[in-house]
Structure formats: C-alpha cells, structure tokens
Design a protein around this nucleic acid. Structure first.
Length: 84
DNA sequence: ACTGAGCGG
C-alpha cells in the first residue's frame, strides 16, 4: 500500500520517516521528497508497505500525530502522477 | 524572514 505523508518538518528525512512506519510493520520503501535544485525538503513524502493491514494501522496511528515537532498528515497515496 | 498546502521519478 502506498502512503502519502504531508506537513513534515523540513528537517525530517526519509530514514526518520521509514523508522517511524517500521514501528507498525514492514516498510518496503520510504522517502521524503526533496527539491532537486535547492535540496530542501518539500515537506511531504511517501511510504510503501507490503502489508496492507499494517499500512492501515500505521495510517491510523500516525495521521495527525506529532512527528519531529509537526503534526503530520498521513493518508493513502494516489497513484503516481500519470505521465502523459 | 526560508516554510506550510500538498501527491514523487
């Protein structure tokens, strides 16, 4: 299951994101989106969890929870930008 | 003083 995580602290990294979700289950991939030019975080990221059950648990538990000093938003991600 | 809504490659 793909998970979208928003309102992250700009200091938060993919590692911290992954660690956070690993507390609820297996994480196949996690990453914070950084601006390619400024190398600064865009304030949101994505986490992919193979176990849908664990994913839902993680969403429930982490959505609107405090992470790195910010209240984050966690929800199921949309399909990746369909490139045309 | 950046930087707060939002879906990446």
């Amino acid at each position: 299951m793909n998970i979208f995580v928003a309102k992250l602290n700009y200091r938060t990294t993919s590692e911290e994101l992954q660690r956070q979700f690993e507390a609820f289950g297996e994480v196949s991939s996690a990453k914070v989106i950084f601006d390619r030019e400024t190398q600064r975080s865009k304030g949101f990221g994505f986490v992919e969890m193979p176990d849908d059950d664990a994913a839902r648990e993680a969403i429930q538990a982490l959505n609107e929870s405090e992470f790195d000093g910010r209240t984050i938003v966690v929800k199921e991600a949309r399909p990746k930008t369909e490139t045309y």
